[in-house]
Amino acid sequence: MQTAAITRESHGVAHAIANALYRNPRLLLALLLGPPLIWLGIVYLGSLFALLAQSFFHLDDFSGVVIHEFSLKTYAHLFTGANMAIVLRTVAMAAAVTFACIAIAYPIAYYMVRHASSKMKALLFLGVMLPLWSSYLVRVYAWKLILAKEGVITWFAERLHLTWLLDGLLAIPTIGGPSLSTSYIGTFIVFVYIWVPYMILPIVAALERVPKSLIEASADLGSRPRDTFRNVILPLSVPGMVAGSIFTFSLTLGDYIIPNIVGNSRPFIGMAVLAQQGTAGNIPLAAAFTMWPIVIMGVYLIVAKRKGAFEAL
């Protein structure tokens, strides 16, 4: 009898908690969201504010010591020619990589959603995801070998008598160089390769959400497939492209490993941050550099929203 009473008692406590949560959905919400929100608030927003604060300090030119006083000296330094060149180089690369990713990802995503059989679709999904299972560093170094002067691409170009094409490509001023692995072209190829899955998946998701009946309705109203694509499918998949471009653009803006391994060793924002906070010991300038990707992405999202990119969501 007594054990029965005890089990009923403990049963009662669990029930009491369950009932209390049922009656107070806000309490449940607070318990569910509290821990992650505290984590985000402190770790994420806190570090962002720390960065912002740091960027208003400056380095004393003679002693090399960080002066913890508000000043705009660091920003003045950020807007000098050499540093602006780094920013422009990174933004141009990020934009080029994003456009290339859309150009490659869209047809693949379109095929996956509108044409592929379910088996083919699963296979393509696997193909898109598979590279993400191996180390990013390994893949970048593999590309360095592929793109090297003695690498596979050069070898193939020789066999196919296309050396003139490769040389012509490398002879292009600014983006060319002695070999693919030491030019902007190489950096660009590797960036596109690494980020393209992050473009394919959101576009697939956006295209999946376009009901078949809308495409039929467009045809029914006299629209040829090409016009249906332009008037219906493309505008409705813009949110997917914007979502993908947020990935490809911001990941390229912040990456410091790829341009370090493949490219002509001219610095990108990420590399500048690494150098400033490491060897140079100029934490305020490193912090000021990191403001660029944040501001650029903020402006990009606001413009995208104004242009109605998310209206079809």
Binding site: S213, E216, N231, P235, L236, A312
Partner: peptide, 14 residues
């Protein structure tokens, strides 16, 4: 020369 009124209306949301 026929037009359809779809069951789910299929209005273009954008």
């Amino acid at each position: 020369d026929v037009n359809t009124v779809f069951q789910d209306y299929a209005l273009f949301p954008h």
